[in-house]
Design a protein around this nucleic acid. Structure first.
Lengths: 148, 148
DNA sequence: GACCTTACTGAGAATGATTATCAGATGCAG
DNA sequence: CTGCATCTGATAATCATTCTCAGTAAGGTC
C-alpha cells in the first residue's frame, strides 16, 4: 500500500462547496451534479440523489446545498424552466457566461461580450455598471440535427 | 364643451396591449405603467392601480395584463427582486436590452452586445443560437452620487 | 480516542408568487 | 341593438422555495 493518500482513490467529486463542511449528504450531491451533465433544477437534483436504494436526502438539504454551491461559485443560475430556477456546473474561475441547449440542457461556457465600448456608453449615460447577466439559448449540434 | 372627442384629452396611454380588447381595467393599468417610471413587480403595479378612490383591480387581472403586455412586446422581464419578477416598459421595436439601476429601478435600453464574433464562435462549437438574454445592473448618476 | 462546538440534516409547516376556476360583466363587430 | 367572445374579480389552488427545530455528525483540539 502506498505511503500517501492518493486523492484520486475515491470518486474525485470536486470540492463544490468551497471549504464548507462536507457531510455524507453533500458528498452524494456533489457526486450527482456532474452526472447530470447539463442544466438542472433543484428538484431534478433532488430526484437524482433520492433515486436508488439508500435513505433519501431531504429536499431542504438539496436547496441548501444548491445555495452553498452557488455561493461558492461552483454552480450558476442559467435561467429558468417553467417556474423553477435552472442551475449548471460552473467550471473554472474565469469570468464567463453560459450557452444552454434548450433541447438537452447541455451547457457550455462562453466569453463575456460586455466590452469596454458598451460599458463606456453606459457610463456616458450616467450609469455605473456593477454587474450583468448574459445567457444564450440555442441548440447543440446533436439536437439541431435531430430536428432537421 | 367640444363637439368632438379629442383623443388627447385623456392621458395618451399607449396601446400596450397590442390590439387586444381594451377594458377599463386595462386602461387604468396601461396608464399606471408609465407613471412608475422604472422596473416594477406585478404586485407593485397592483398597488399603484389599487391606490386611490375607486374600486380596486383584482390581482389576477394585473397578472393577466402583465402577461398580455409582455406578449405584445410592451413589457420585458428585467430580472427579479426577492422572489418576484421585475418588469419594465419596453419602448421601440429595435432589438435591445436593459440596464437597471439597482438603487431606484430606472431602466434604460442598451444596444445588443451579442455580435457576429460571439455568435460565430458559438457556432464553431456546434451551437445554433436561437435567443439570448442580457441585463446590466448598476447605479444611475443620482443614486451613485447619493452613495458617495 | 474522547470531547466539544457548531454546522448540517430532515420532516413538515409556512411563505409567497403566480395561476386556475367560474360565474358575471362588458367590449366590440356586425 | 345584439351576440358572443373576451375580460374581470374573488377565491382557491398550485408550486417553488424557505423556515423551524430537534437531532446528528464533521472536524478541530487535547
Amino acid at each position: 500500500m502506498s505511503k500517501i493518500h492518493h486523492p484520486t482513490d475515491k470518486a474525485p467529486s470536486p470540492d463544490l462547496f468551497g471549504g464548507q463542511r462536507l457531510s455524507a449528504a453533500r458528498r452524494r450531491i456533489a457526486a450527482a451534479v456532474p452526472s447530470i451533465g447539463g442544466a438542472f433544477t433543484a428538484e431534478d437534483l433532488h430526484e437524482v440523489v433520492s433515486a436508488g436504494d439508500g435513505p433519501g436526502i431531504g429536499v431542504a438539504t438539496v436547496y441548501r446545498a444548491v445555495s452553498a454551491m452557488t455561493a461558492a461559485g461552483s454552480l450558476a443560475a442559467v435561467g429558468a424552466r417553467d417556474g423553477s430556477t435552472l442551475y449548471a456546473l460552473c467550471t473554472g474561475g474565469e469570468h464567463h457566461h453560459h450557452l444552454v441547449c434548450t433541447g438537452c440542457g447541455i451547457v457550455v461556457g462562453i466569453g463575456c461580450p460586455i466590452d469596454g465600448a458598451l460599458r463606456r456608453s453606459a457610463e456616458e449615460a450616467g450609469y455605473t455598471v456593477t454587474s450583468h447577466e448574459v445567457t444564450l439559448y440555442g441548440l447543440c449540434r446533436a439536437c439541431a440535427k435531430e430536428r432537421a
